[in-house]
Computed example of a mutant assay.
Amino acid sequence: MRVTCAQLHIENADVVGNTERAVAAIERAASEGSDLVVLPEIFNVGYFAFDSYARAAEPLDGETLTTIRETARDCGVGVLAGSIVEDLTASEDAPQGEFANTSVLFDRDGERLAVYRKHHLFGYESAETELLTPGDELSVAEFEDHTVGMSTCYDLRFPELYRELAELGATLVCVPSAWPYPRVEHWQLLPRARAVENQLYVATANGSGQFEEAELLGRSAVYDPWGTTLAASDDDPTLVHTTVDPDTVAATREEFPAWRDRRR
């Protein structure tokens, strides 16, 4: 399966422009043979546009995700719609609260395969913990020949979440993100560690852009079950393509059976 991490240029509170850039990236990735496209965290509003969260919040069938769903269907490509600010009051099965940082996985027909609400909200110089409600369920879904797990940005610092995804059968974990400078080393270390620990693929899709509060560092990448970097970018907007093979996950676990040696 060919996966693409769409490193988008994101403007704070420019929902129309950001969504148009996402659509263009999906269309281009599909034309270049991608099977699955991963978008960044809160790609439509911009992660740092905290003052815009409430008025830009949408239900799962709102305008942004409807546009992405239709683009996935029209292009015949799977899309992990990075994340949006979800209006929880519009969903009966949502956790109690007003808003969440929510990602949705669509298949090639635009059908919703899975929903993930970010578990670990970032409290360090961020208003996310004040504005959003954390999710309480993990999500995996079958897409093509992979079992795809979903997580978001700050979740990378919590290895137990990735072990749970691996135990649910994930062979590929996608990580929409809005990771800023200066923590470049952390951004490159943590997903590699999660890949090595769980012997699976990890694909990170970060944004690109300068804001008053921060600058996104880009560097989207895909790591294989050995922690090898298969594809990566700098901090400019781009598409990061590579091929991920579930047989490699099985072969890695067979060759180096660390899971067999675990003690609880």
Rank of each mutant, 00 (worst) to 15 (best):
L216G: 07
V45T: 15
D245A: 04
D107R: 01
A57N: 13
L216Y: 09
V77K: 00
V240S: 09
E41M: 13
A178Y: 07
A232C: 08
E125S: 13
E41L: 14
R260G: 06
V37L: 03
D51K: 15
A94S: 11
P257A: 01
C5Y: 10
R253C: 00
A221F: 06
R55M: 10
S139L: 12
A81L: 03
F158V: 10
A72G: 07
A72H: 01
G123M: 05
R73M: 03
L138W: 01
E63Y: 05
F143N: 03
R69A: 15
E160W: 05
A195C: 14
F106V: 14
P182L: 08
L230V: 15
D87K: 07
A90I: 14
N18R: 02
A258F: 06
V79S: 04
A29Y: 10
A232H: 12
D136H: 11
G46A: 05
H9F: 12
G209L: 00
V140K: 00
S151F: 12
L132E: 09
D61K: 00
L190G: 00
A81Q: 01
V104P: 01
L165F: 09
F256P: 01
V85K: 02
L113Y: 10
D145E: 13
L80Q: 11
T229I: 14
G33I: 10
I26M: 05
R157D: 08
N206L: 01
L39V: 15
A13G: 02
V23L: 07
L156N: 12
R183N: 08
D235W: 08
L172K: 00
C153H: 11
P134V: 12
A195N: 08
H146K: 00
Y181A: 05
T204M: 06
G227D: 14
E167F: 10
T133Y: 07
A72F: 04
V15S: 00
A49H: 09
D14H: 03
A49M: 06
E11N: 08
E142T: 10
A72R: 06
Q7N: 11
Y154A: 09
F50A: 13
A100Q: 09
C174T: 15
A24M: 14
Y154R: 06
E70K: 11
E142S: 14
Y162K: 04
R73S: 12
S52L: 02
G169Q: 04
E212K: 13
R28V: 15
T67S: 07
A13T: 08
G78T: 10
E32S: 05
G17E: 02
E128I: 13
A258H: 07
T19N: 04
G17C: 02
H120Y: 08
A54P: 09
E11Y: 04
T66N: 00
Y201K: 03
A114K: 03
E125N: 14
T248L: 07
A114Q: 07
T228W: 05
P225N: 10
A170P: 04
E125M: 14
V244E: 05
N18M: 04
E41I: 15
A57M: 12
E213H: 11
F99H: 14
V23D: 03
E197C: 11
N101G: 06
V240Y: 09
F122N: 10
P180Y: 02
L60C: 04
F211G: 05
G46T: 09
G78N: 02
F122Q: 04
A203L: 08
A81S: 04
E98S: 14
D107E: 03
D107Y: 03
E164Q: 11
H146C: 13
D234Y: 07
A232K: 09
A141I: 13
I26Y: 08
G149Q: 05
E125Q: 11
D234L: 01
E111L: 09
